[in-house]
Design a protein around this nucleic acid. Structure first.
Length: 522
RNA sequence: GCCACCGUAGCUCAGUGGUAGAGCUCUCGAUUCGUAAUCGAGCGGUCGUCGGUUCAAGUCCGACCGGUGGCUCCA
């Protein structure tokens, strides 16, 4: 027996009674005509829903907020709806385009299309013009719930959507949204109609693998941005312009700090005198910082017999990122393969293992500001922020299990001192857990992941879980920050490794290795 | 690596297959009240590289090198 009335509690604590089956729009109207006009969506017990959805009436009083353009959550809704308008326009101009995903993102939205010929800049202009027509037409966003069979029938010509439908769990509600001529499989919510979307701009097109998987087909992605007011849109576009002026690649040239020479190769940095002085000062600062915290400096070779990286487990799993081997003659006729080092771990472990160690020696903190070379994929290179040759502030700490937490605390302190206090960067912590390609037993991973998470929790740090983002030898805490253009980069990383000490000939089985990489980049 | 776009003077960029250009910088000169940009002149280019098409290629085609944006912030 459904209740004849539903009771809602508004954000200001007041309560309202509505007839059963009333929608968010009904509630807004009941509160006032101004709000009814400004309303975009509702938030019911924390969940954002379409204005046209009936409010749930079967669980007593619900907390309901009417979302307007004042609410940041409403901006996501607007952008999600903008993505649908984009797809609506593309389908009008390119009826054969198959649709992928079209979510809201920070500062905007995108939509992926499977289309034989990629979009040209002129296409984007036409699409944006068509989007304005779609917005002007003020099509309502109509939601319906369908069965799995019905959904498959409706999207029979859209293989990407069919794949998505197959991935939906048996209990999930399948909803589709229609705006004018366009129908999309979509979770929602959306603004009431396309007319609410007024201030937007398409930014650029780019290739993007279906589901981010490079083994799958390449789709054509269109990025755009959308805002509630013209001022917001213009301010955003201005911000992009300003950010361009602060691009380190531009400043590097203007201030004569560094260059990259085609004769030498991509991702390899030449530090000019002024830039080198900056690096010199930074190194001194880092060295002072870590020496004061019980780290000991070491220096190790830049090349090594390949054997070392075989033993450490790097080669099978990391070879794609290492430069190919070079040969050197040794002895009478023998040729031995050498590798440039991409990281220092095996080297530092050799120093640790060079003599008998007692648990009394722990923690042993070995640090090196080292040049390493990695064969990064050409498409990922970017100025000084993604390179093939870099100088890393790298340390390996050999610890007993009961010392792990204290060391992680100190590492996070160093991160805060350098990134936060010294450079004023706001950064984020990610706990990256075991990847598919990995060494070691699950029990070891359980232990390592738990140790990192405990340290984060005890410190009261906020962090996110990066599922499967760990290194092949252990989980890690990644420190990420944004550059002047708003792009995100990985700075420091704190990693736990139970494996390499074990596979190393004389390292103690009870020791564990922590490792940190600082922000010194080259 | 993959997709798109781009590569012309030190920098920013124009340049329907037919004799390589502009602004800024720089050098010199003039002028001045000219507060880094007043006026004039000059310097500066195998048009990324290699090959092809053509009577003729910066322009069209191919390969390569390099750069820019992007490659799950999941229906």
């Amino acid at each position: 027996m459904p209740a004849a009335e539903i009771q809602v509690t508004l954000p200001d604590g007041s309560e309202k009674r509505l007839a059963a089956g009333s929608t968010g729009a009904d509630l807004a109207r009941a509160i006032g005509p101004g709000l009814a006009k400004a309303a975009l969506a509702v938030r019911v017990d924390g969940q954002v829903l379409d204005l046209a959805r009936p409010l749930p009436g079967d669980m007593g009083s619900v907390r309901v907020a009417i979302l307007t353009d004042k609410d940041p959550q409403a901006l996501d809704v607007l952008r999600h709806s903008s993505a649908h308008v984009l797809a609506t326009a593309v389908r009008q101009l390119f009826p054969h385009a198959k649709i992928g995903f079209g979510p809201p993102i920070d500062d905007g939205f995108y939509y992926d299309f499977d289309i034989p010929t990629p979009f040209s800049p002129e296409d984007l202009e036409k699409i944006e013009a068509k989007m304005r027509e779609v917005a002007q037409a003020d099509y309502p966003f109509v939601r319906e719930e369908v069965t799995r069979e019905e959904a498959k029938r409706r999207f029979a010509d859209d293989p990407l959507k069919l794949e998505r439908i197959d991935d939906l769990g048996p209990d999930e509600v399948i909803s589709i949204y229609t705006d004018g001529p366009f129908v999309d499989l979509c979770r929602g919510p959306h603004v009431p109609s396309t007319g609410r979307i007024k201030h937007f701009k398409l930014l650029h097109a780019a290739g993007a693998y279906w589901r981010g998987d490079e083994r799958r087909q390449m789709l054509q992605r269109i990025y755009g941005t959308a805002w509630f007011t013209k001022d917001d849109l213009e301010a955003y576009l201005r911000r992009l312009e300003e950010a361009k002026k602060r691009d380190h690649r531009l400043l590097g040239r203007q201030l004569d700090l560094f260059s990259i020479q085609e004769d030498v190769g991509p991702g390899l940095i030449f530090w000019h005198p002024k830039g080198a002085m900056l690096q010199f000062q930074l190194r001194r600062f880092i060295e002072d910082t870590i020496l004061a915290r019980g780290y000991q400096l070491v220096y190790t070779p830049n090349v090594t017999r390949e054997e070392l990286f075989l033993r450490s487990g790097h080669l099978p799993l990391y070879a794609a990122n290492q430069f190919p081997p070079m040969a050197a003659g040794e002895g009478e006729s023998e040729t031995v393969r050498y590798r440039v080092k991409p990281m220092n771990c095996p080297m530092h472990i050799l120093i640790y293992a060079a003599q008998q160690r007692s648990y009394r020696d722990l923690p042993l903190r070995l640090a090196e500001i080292a040049n390493v070379y990695r064969n990064e994929r050409s498409g990922t290179l970017h100025g000084m922020l993604r390179v093939r040759g870099l100088t890393m502030d790298d340390a390996h700490i050999f610890v007993r299990p009961d010392q792990i937490e204290a060391e992680i605390f100190q590492l996070l302190d160093i991160v805060e001192l350098v990134l936060g206090q010294t450079f004023g960067l706001s950064y984020r912590l990610d706990l990256a857990t075991r990847p598919d390609k990995k060494l070691g037993a699950d029990a070891t991973w359980d232990q390592a992941e738990r140790a990192l998470e405990e340290a984060l929790k005890h410190r009261g740090a906020t962090y996110r879980i990066d599922q499967g983002g760990g290194a092949f030898y252990g989980p890690k805490i990644d420190v990420k920050f944004n550059d002047a253009i708003g792009r995100e980069w990985q700075g420091a990383t704190i990693q736990l490794d139970f494996e390499q000490p074990e596979s190393s000939p004389s390292a103690s089985g009870s020791s564990t290795r922590g490792r940190t990489t600082g922000p010194t980049a080259r």
